[in-house]
Write a protein that binds this DNA or RNA. Structure first.
Length: 543
RNA sequence: GGCCAGUUGGUGAAGUGGUUAACACACAUGCCUUUCACGCAUGCAUUCACGAGUCCAAAUCUCGUACUGGUCACCA
């Protein structure tokens, strides 16, 4: 029995490789791809990889492809694919080809979901069987385990290779007999390398190095008929025309496998860039960001916090190329994509995730937003995470924009908010509905009668609607003077004994009276937006 | 354990043979000021994991040691 006859037994009505290859003509565009598994929520590292792929595709006027790697049916999660597509959309990483949902997709090099590509993989595997580079393996898990132990005891390399690859030597007749008996099997690739062989590797990030060549007869088709990652990668990225495979660093050491696979199929190899994973400092231990251990690994967590997607992208950009930050500070008005991202600038060691840095970037980003745009973001955010507040700011639209606009849209805006989630903590007291159950943070002046006196005096004697900032500052001085307090910092410092205190003690009384808090943004704006009536009402709350 | 990569301040890092070892975050002090935030000013590694070597010259090149990370599945 020949290899070809065996191939026909294994794959009864599978297309010939030639015919498949014709369906995917070569194309000369620069193509990158993001190929996640639908195993749950998007990991920050995935977003990082996707972003880099996207950016490089755009900058080279190429194509960005989304491909779903769902060959592991056990780890597959419902909604997994939808989540991936949604996250990509949320971050504006629009792909040129890929699935739109479970049924529809765009692009003519699909299907873009691996579980729908089984017949394609089979054509390639059939070819490998035909040329004697692939064979069925009937070894059980138990046998494989005992082999592993045996090899450990003998202190030789563990794995299915060389003389340990038992099923390599099965005769065609034995194979056919086993199959007829219904014994489950996988298909393994037959490696031709020897243990001492090495292979030169080129990589966009790691540069050049030498690795041991692959010697393992790796599984390329699992019992369930689906391919393993290694095989699917080679087939898909070749067919889809990927020019540069940008993927996680952890694939680097399996590159020799992929290279041997490409060679066995007579396919030209691709260019690779293996990017190191995002790390985190866990009490002195540096490790990969882990979805199980770190909330920071989940992209959804940033959404929960209310870190604007654009801010997260800026942060990721600084992780990708550290010279991005300097460029960005000088080009605040430009699109991130205008920065020339470079593979060469990616560090070989994984970037450490730094929450403070993220917050700082986010804070600066938010401070530069127009009040109207911030309002929109806040609306989107509260709609999901704080529906009560959402209703409130919806019914007080203009007022809310006015509040958000305090010390904003000026050259050096306030930088209070590092996320959309903290905004309420800063502005809640501006809403009459929320101004109750108060704990006043009185400072120097604590005597409630004196406080009432100061407040009433100010409102009845000095404050009026439409007062200018200048007049307002002046009114505070007069008020301070009325109560025996210094009218300026300088005055007070020069002669502290002459006064009961400083003007800041008086303004603090007004501030705490109106907000209950000692630290807030500009008091003049607070009064202006609250209005005289509400200010009067708040006197009645003083106890 | 084998193989591959990395190691620069409190943190993220720039730096590829000659620099005062950038920049940013954090921190500290001062100024400004109606509080806070902002802003401004100043301070914060005589030294680049350690040891040896090459060179007039090393954070940068070579070797060794230590440590850290990644990888060795019918998971991707």
């Amino acid at each position: 029995m020949s290899n070809k006859e065996l191939a026909e037994v294994l794959f009864t009505d599978t297309l010939d490789l030639e015919d498949v290859l014709k369906k995917y003509p070569r194309r000369d565009k620069f193509i990158t791809r993001y190929a996640p598994s639908p195993t749950g929520f998007t990991h920050l590292g995935n977003l990082y990889t996707a972003f880099l792929n996207y950016v490089l595709a755009k900058q080279n006027k190429g194509l960005f492809i989304l491909r779903i790697e769902d060959t592991d049916q056990k780890r597959k999660v419902k909604e997994g694919i939808e989540n991936i597509i949604k996250d990509l959309n949320d971050f504006g990483l629009t792909f040129d080809e890929g699935p739109l949902n479970l049924e529809k997709e765009k692009g003519s090099y699909g299907p873009y979901i691996q579980s729908k590509r089984q017949s394609i993989y089979d054509s390639f595997i059939k070819y490998l069987v035909t040329i004697g580079r692939a064979y069925p393996c009937f070894c059980t898990d138990e046998y494989l385990e005992s082999l592993h132990k045996e090899q450990e005891n003998k202190k030789v390399m563990t794995g299915y290779y060389g003389s340990y690859a038992k099923c390599r030597d099965l005769t065609k007749e034995e194979i056919v007999k086993n199959i007829k008996l219904g014994i489950p099997y996988v298909i393994r690739f037959k490696s031709l390398n020897k243990e001492s062989d090495t292979i030169k590797i080129k990589d966009g990030v790691i540069k050049e190095t030498t690795l041991p060549a692959n010697i393992f007869d790796i599984v390329i088709r699992k019992k369930d008929g689906l391919p393993t990652y290694h095989f699917a990668h080679v087939v898909d990225d070749y067919l889809m025309g990927t020019s540069l495979v940008i993927r996680d660093h952890n694939w680097f050491t399996s590159l020799p496998i992929h290279l041997e696979l490409f060679a066995s199929l007579n396919l030209t190899t691709l260019k690779y860039a293996h990017i190191p994973p995002v790390m985190i400092n866990d009490n002195g231990v540096i490790r990969k960001l882990s979805k199980r251990k770190d909330v920071w690994a989940k992209v959804s967590f940033y959404k929960e916090l209310g870190i604007p997607t654009e801010a997260l992208k800026i942060y990721l950009a600084t992780l990708i190329n550290t010279n991005f930050e300097g460029w960005y500070q000088n080009n605040l008005d430009k699109d991130i994509l205008e920065f020339p991202f470079s593979l060469n600038k990616i560090s070989k060691s994984g970037p450490l995730f730094d929450k403070d840095k993220l917050y700082n970037i986010s804070k600066n980003y938010i401070s530069r937003l127009k009040a109207k745009d911030l309002y929109k973001l806040l609306l989107d955010y509260t709609k999901i995470y704080d529906i009560e507040f959402y209703k409130l700011i919806t019914s007080y639209k203009d007022k809310t924009i006015a509040i958000l606009n305090i010390e904003r849209e000026i050259p050096k805006p306030r930088k209070d908010y590092y996320s959309l989630g903290v905004i309420k903590d800063y502005i809640w007291f501006m809403y009459d509905e929320l101004f109750n159950n108060l704990t006043y943070e009185w400072q120097q002046i604590k005597d409630i009668n004196l406080i009432k006196d100061i407040v009433t005096t100010y409102i009845t004697k000095y404050y009026y609607e439409g007062i200018s900032k200048e007049e307002w500052l002046n009114s505070l001085k007069l008020l301070a003077n009325d109560f025996g307090y210094a009218t300026s910092n300088k005055e007070y410092k020069e002669n502290p004994n002459k006064y009961k205190g400083n003007i800041s003690d008086i303004t603090t009384v007004l501030r705490v009276f109106l907000t209950s808090k000692k630290d807030t943004f500009d008091l003049y704006e607070i009064m202006r937006i609250l209005g005289l009536e509400e200010m009067k009402r708040r006197i009645t709350l003083l106890k």
